[in-house]
């Protein structure tokens, strides 16, 4: 069984990843990159815990064989976290009590990042749609939806401040 070397840009850094045939992006991130913030919940694209951004779009990393995405740019929860403090989405989730066990949180936050990149001013319905592929068994979702909208407001405010 021949392994392959795949080039990925992971959280801004160029990486060469050695993978066995069919290794998922999820396994590559967790096992060879040590980026364990991306979680495994189902290995079948049903729970969203492994959501990352691939070339700026949210994708389930458990459904991507690494050999098929040579050259892709990957952003994970670790890359979202700034050098100091937290990203506005993280702040909104933290302050809005949008986490309980924390297992779905990385995926929820990356799904939110994907939404806000496309749509900086989402409606509540947009927020619900954006996380409709992410399962949370603890919160009942309301706090998470509130946090998505709060994150959007924080990011718009930050953009206005920067412009001013």
């Amino acid at each position: 069984m021949k392994h392959s070397v795949v080039a990925l840009t992971v959280n801004g850094a160029e990486r060469q990843v050695l993978v066995a045939p069919g290794t998922t992006l999820l396994d590559a991130l967790r096992e060879s990159q040590g980026l364990t913030g991306t979680r495994r919940g189902c290995d079948q694209g049903a729970c969203g815990a492994c959501t990352v951004l691939v070339d700026g779009k949210t994708m389930m990393s458990c459904l991507l064989p690494v050999e098929t995405i040579d050259g892709a740019t990957i952003d994970t929860i670790e890359g979202l976290t700034p050098m100091e403090g937290l990203h506005p989405i993280q702040e909104a989730f933290l302050e809005g009590f949008a986490t309980q066990c924390g297992f779905c949180t990385s995926g929820m936050i990356m799904a939110t990042a994907g939404l806000l990149a496309r749509n900086p001013d989402p409606s509540r319905e947009d927020a619900v749609r954006a996380i409709s592929g992410n399962i949370c068994r603890c919160t009942g979702y309301e706090a998470i939806i509130d946090a998505v909208l709060d994150a959007a407001a924080r990011m718009r405010a930050a953009k206005r401040d920067k412009a001013a």
């Binding site: 079948q44 459904l63 064989p65 098929t68």
Partner: peptide, 21 residues
Amino acid sequence: GGTAVMPTLNAGTDEFSSLVS
């Protein structure tokens, strides 16, 4: 897209031994 094939692979399968993307 992999959304149907990959769950099969991840669960272990004898249905195929190569993938062409």
